[in-house]
């Protein structure tokens, strides 16, 4: 009875992946954001089916868990592309051409912010400040920050992801 795949609940179905994560956090309701982060990291998104499971484990209402999952920009119910590129849209990056960088990226990838490329390789998103404000414009490639980005480096990064 070890490992996520073999953990059984009373109905005999495979247990929801959220259960083990809740347990790891001691089923503490104050750890809800941590739980959602871990779940999303593991599954690539927050499966909606996990929300009632989390609610039960943490002794919260479904509405409370749903409310939290939808309040924060980070959490998403649908899977994203293999890679996520976030472009900083905040003021320091604006002063160094972030608007132009965004327009270039949208044209190059043929998507708007918030969309995924046709080959499902890259989701393009906005972010607001990566703390690299003296090396603008900056982007986040998956979990890796990249600064002083221009069209050339952006295209090289995209090529490196594919």
């Amino acid at each position: 009875m070890s490992g996520k795949a073999t953990l059984l609940d009373f109905t005999g179905k495979t247990a929801d992946p959220a259960l083990a994560i809740c347990q790891k956090h001691g089923n503490r309701s104050d750890a809800l954001l941590e739980i959602l982060h871990d779940l999303q990291h593991e599954q690539g998104h927050v499966p909606e089916a996990s929300l009632p499971v989390i609610a039960k484990a943490l002794n919260l209402s479904r509405a409370e868990v749903y409310g939290v999952a939808t309040f924060y920009h980070d959490f998403h119910f649908k899977p994203k592309a293999a890679h996520v590129i976030k472009i900083c849209r905040a003021e320091a990056c604006q002063s160094m051409g972030a608007r132009e960088l965004q327009a270039m990226a949208e044209k190059f990838l043929k998507v708007k912010l918030g969309e995924t490329t046709a080959d499902r390789q890259i989701t393009l998103e906005a972010t607001y400040c990566l703390g690299l404000c003296a090396s603008s414009p900056a982007i986040m490639v998956d979990e890796r920050p990249v600064a002083r980005v221009d069209a050339k480096t952006f295209k090289a990064i995209v090529a490196g992801l594919k």
């Binding site: 905040a90 003021e91 400040c129 703390g131 404000c133 003296a134």
Partner: peptide, 11 residues
């Protein structure tokens, strides 16, 4: 939470 654009001292 250092959300202000133009700040990075906390980081």
């Amino acid at each position: 939470d250092e959300g202000d654009s133009g700040t990075f001292a906390d980081r």
